[in-house]
Amino acid sequence: MIWLTWRQHRKQALFTLIALAVVAAVMVPTGLAMHHRYERSGLAACLADLGDAQMIRQSEAAVHCQALSHQFQQQYSDLAFVAILFVILPVFVGLFFGAPLVAREVEQGTHRLVWTQSVSRRRWALTKFGLVGGVTVVLAVLYAVGVSWWFGPLVTASSGRMGYLSFDVQGVAPVGYTLFAVALGVFAGTLWRKVLPAMGAALVGFAAVRLTVETLARPRYMSPKTLTFSPQSVLRPNPATGDWVYGQGVRDAAGHLVASGAQIGPCAPPGCGGVAAGSYNWQLYQPGSRFWEFQAIETGIFLALTVLLVALAIRRLRDIA
């Protein structure tokens, strides 16, 4: 079975290696340049100096550091778009590894050849799914480690790794996405039994589930924290914590939101002109320190879906003839 799986998929493996080499050829030089620039400009050092305190004193150094961040982001803003490519990479693995696994066999009728040898359908399925799944895990880990390294400076210089695009390509979540995409492709193949419709269905399904989880579920994994601080305070939120800010604004003494998306201060001791007494700055956020908790929950959801889809696919196989 192992030999057969290798013989059937060796072309795919070769193409995957070529694709990996191409991606690496782009990532390694740009990543090195970015890391170099990050260190040399002093951005790395100044961000480290800001520490991980929630609030910091608004100092000359902090302002300078923010300027450096902006400069860095401007310089590499084009590369941030490459990250979009990384977001959709898992679905390609699902389309090209997962969807044809059963669908091509049925489309070409070869399931009638391979399932009528002396190997049970279940063993055939477990071996194939296992091997393809294993290769997928290796690829996904490589991808996650590589992208985390490559994207690190840009993410730290901007809004942090809890943000929408950066959360999705770092940590362990990409492994969950990729396995889910493959399982979805396999399952779609047992339903449509033709490669192209299975690929189309897997693509639509993957996008739908990912978007749903990302927009509806993820913000609710843990209850967000609230931060309030006075306009007169010299302490401001630390930009280096990498918090995921849901919303911010100014509230009056009664707690009503009077200005959305804005913050005021720091003002000199007499108070800020035109702002009612007792007003305060307000921010609703997920702390950046919750990154790994969020990654674990997100990955868990997609791994559970993967297991479910594989079980359903094996069930469906029994009815294919």
Binding site: Q8, Q108, G109, L113, T116
Partner: peptide, 14 residues
């Protein structure tokens, strides 16, 4: 299965 030789319609092969 080991006792049965089967040639499906259109003789599918890889």
């Amino acid at each position: 299965l080991a006792e049965i030789g089967f040639v499906a319609q259109d003789t599918p092969l890889y």
